[in-house]
Structures are given as structure tokens and as C-alpha cells.
Amino acid sequence: MNLKDRAQGAIVGAFIGDAIALGPHWYYDLDEQHKDYGEWITTYTTPKKGRYHEHEEKGNQSQSGYILKLMIKSLIENKAYNQEDFCKKLDEDLFTKIDGIPTHGPGGYTSQSIREVYRQRVEQKLPWDKVGSRADTTEGIERTLALAVLYALNTKELAKSISHNTFLTQVDDIVGSMTVAYGAVLAQLIQGEKLDKDISTKLMKLVKKGELPFHAVTSDNLKPPKDGAKDPSNIGLFASPDALLSPSFMAQAANDKDIKIEPAWKVSLVYGMPCAIYHMLPACYYLSARFNDDFESAILHALNGGGQNQARSILTGALVGAQVGLKNIPQRFIDGLNEKEEILELAKKLSDIIEE
């Protein structure tokens, strides 16, 4: 397994996570989910009438997958992140297909942050540098995970491009910091590092080297600051590195024999079913550490946890896909994608331009 295989695994894993949750998306009543889809969902399903994606076919992508494809196409065409080009794609290829109503648009549902920016761009005619929402969700991660792949070996550019792209639609610093942190974790996994108790130590070393834009006053291994050490400037920095520290704790919990979450899908009950980023990321890190070499178990436990299981599956799919590589993702998950050939081609082309 090499870097390109892991990079392609991350991209394909994200698309699988998006499509596999299309049917049972947003069931907060698990009894209702079990009634519609059975106790354990194992594959792609057709959305039920009256649900969020009712007019879509099983194996289709939601709007998250649609936007992720726009991002990847822009990266491939420009061989780098070009914000102007990505914004143009949103204006021409997305905003012309939505109308600000939640249940309309590609994939059958348009998220809060995208609806708000649509209104600002199309109805209020605001320039791109004047738009954004207070949505505390993971839409930023769902598209910028492609930036983490492209810049897996260039941490500074990763942080810069992910933060700039996230703030197009979500202007909260906490959301920004957690989105950049996820991208940094994904990049480490693409490099071949492990999602374990040491992952945060590696990330903090990048902070100390000035490659990740987080404010940190502690010395090595979170020890007290050295006597006389200067307080780092906050200009251009996220306020706290805590978003970089949490993955290690989730990984420790996943591997601690005294901490039992059984079955593993109940991690959604432990960390919460809702859409907010602070519910999603802990569950994704936990599942991705626990099933670091088992894509099928990771994606199915993310899926069967109910609530915002689509975001949980996308983010987990990318993290575990990066750990197992494309060649170790079960073929049945790839074959079930209705856009299989296009997705595989995009993943390969993106991996071919990863910056050395």
C-alpha cells in the first residue's frame, strides 16, 4: 500500500459513506429506522417516500457528494486549490440547480450553510468575500477532505486552503479549527501514520514548527511553558489546539479494554446523533481508530447509528479508507456506487497530482 492507494481510499471511502446513508439518512427514532430498514443495514438502500432523499435511487450521491465532485474537478483542472474557480463552479453548477428550499437541489436536500450562501449570492447579490453562515455542521469537511488529500504532504498549504474554503460557507472559528484539524488528521493517515494515542503529539509538533495555525503556549507533550517563553501571536491563528488533541483521546477510548461501547454503532448515542461538528467528529475518530483495518465494520457502524449518519459515514469512510487503501475497500461497496467509474477516475487523477 502506497500514498496514492491511501489517497484514493480516502476519496472513494467518502463517496461510499455519502451514498450508503442516502436511504436511512436522519432517523432520530431508531425504532422507526429499524422498522423501515431492519435491525442492521448492510448495503445501499432506496430512500422511503416522505424522507429526505425520496426521489433518489439507491447508490446515488447526496448533495455532499455532488459538491465534493465539484471540488475535486476544480483541483484536477487547476492542479491546485483555486478559490475563484471553485466559487465559479458553485455559482454555475450548484446555485443554478437550487432555490433555497431545503428539499430541493441535487441529491434531494440542500444543507443550511449552502442555503444561506445561496440566498446571499443569488438573492442579495453579495460578493463571495461577504458571504457565510453560522452553521456549526460538517459541510466544510465534506468537501475540504479533498484538499487534505491534495496537500497531504504540504501541511501549511493544507491548513491555508481548508480554512479559506471553509469560511466561504461557515464563519465560526471553532468550526474552522475543527475542520482544519480533521484535514490534518486525514493527511497524517494518508502519509501512513496511525490513528492512535500518538496522533495528537505528531500534530502538535507541526504546530510548534509553524505549519498548523493554532495558538499553543505549552512546551512538548503539553508540559507547562518554559520559563520566559513568549506568548505566540494570535494573528492568523485559531485560538486553541484542542481540536488537534481530541483524536488521541478518541483513539485511546477505542483501544481501552475497560471502555466498552457495544455494539459500536452506539457511539452515536455516546457522542450524540445531531448534525453539529462537535457530535460528529468524536464518533468518527472513535470508529476510525477502532476499525482502522476494517472498512466494512467502520462504515456500517457509522451508518447504523442513526441521526446524521450520512456525515458520520462520509467522515469515517475517508479516515478508514485512508488507512486501508483503495485496494482493501470491499469491492461490493465500490460496485454499488451509481457513479462508480467517474468516482474512481476522479480519485486516481487527484492522487496523481498530490504535491510532493
Results as ranks from 00 to 15, higher is better:
Arg134Glu: 12
Glu341Thr: 14
Ala7Cys: 09
Arg143Met: 11
Ala298Leu: 05
Trp40Lys: 11
Ala216Thr: 00
Ser200Glu: 02
Tyr182Ile: 04
Thr110Gln: 06
His53Thr: 10
Leu206Tyr: 02
Cys87Gly: 03
Gln308Ser: 13
Ala251Ile: 07
Leu94Thr: 08
Lys205Leu: 08
Ile334Pro: 02
Gly183Thr: 08
Gly176Gln: 05
Arg312Asp: 01
His53Met: 11
Ala302His: 02
Glu339Phe: 05
Asp91Cys: 08
Gly100Arg: 05
Leu281Arg: 01
Arg332Tyr: 14
Asp136Gln: 14
Gly306Thr: 01
Asn309Ala: 02
Glu339Asn: 12
Asp172Ala: 07
Lys266Asn: 11
Gly236Trp: 13
Gln61Lys: 11
Asp129Ile: 11
Leu75Arg: 03
His53Arg: 09
Lys209Glu: 00
Lys197Asp: 11
Leu147Trp: 05
Ser74Gln: 09
Leu303Ser: 01
Leu147Ala: 08
Tyr271Asn: 01
Ala181Met: 03
Pro224Met: 08
Met273Tyr: 00
Ile190Ser: 02
Gly9Phe: 06
Lys340Asn: 07
Glu56Trp: 09
Phe295Ile: 09
Val180Leu: 09
Glu39Cys: 04
Ile343Pro: 00
Ile41Phe: 03
Ala19Gly: 15
Pro241Cys: 04
Gly307Trp: 01
Ile353Val: 15
Ala311Pro: 01
Leu245Pro: 02
Val12Gln: 04
Thr96Lys: 14
His164Tyr: 14
Phe295Gly: 07
Glu92Pro: 02
Ile141Gly: 01
Arg121Ala: 10
Tyr37Ala: 03
Gln33Ser: 07
His55Asp: 14
Tyr151Leu: 09
Ser163His: 13
Gly317Pro: 09
His301Pro: 01
Asn328Lys: 15
Ile67Arg: 08
Pro274Cys: 06
Asp85Asn: 14
Leu150Met: 10
Leu3Ser: 02
Ala276Arg: 09
Lys209Tyr: 01
Lys4His: 08
Ala10Gln: 08
Asn82Arg: 05
Asn60Cys: 13
Leu168Arg: 10
Ile174Cys: 01
Glu296Lys: 14
Val12Pro: 03
Glu139Lys: 10
Ser177Asp: 05
